[in-house]
């Protein structure tokens, strides 16, 4: 079982308390009603699904209830870092070692 650090609770908690919520930094367009089919397709359907470092959303659903973002390596399952929703992607160089 993974341990995940909730950036709101500032605590490492077991995976059971969390729920995965898809790729992070997919921003819903403010003018969503007016975007083209291609733009909607890119926003709603396309996901990166990388091998390696991925940015994803989690929710501390059985804890504080907050959604946050995580950087995880899909190969090793290692969580590089977690950060609050709305914060920019962290610079990764420092975590690569």
């Amino acid at each position: 079982m993974l341990l995940i650090r909730c950036p709101y609770c500032q605590e490492e908690r077991p995976e059971l308390e969390f729920r995965h919520a898809g790729e992070a930094h997919v921003v819903r367009p403010h003018n969503i009603a007016d975007i083209s089919d291609e733009e909607f397709e890119a926003f709603f359907f396309h996901r990166a699904n990388p091998k390696g470092i991925t940015h994803e959303r989690w929710r501390h659903v059985h804890g504080c209830g907050r959604f946050f973002n995580a950087v995880r390596d899909t190969v090793s399952d290692r969580f590089v870092t977690t950060y609050k929703a709305g914060e920019p992607k962290p610079a990764l160089e420092e975590h690569k070692a």
Partner: peptide
């Protein structure tokens, strides 16, 4: 969950 997702993010 759906409501919280939109409200928070």
């Amino acid at each position: 969950h759906h409501m919280e997702d939109y409200l928070q993010t």
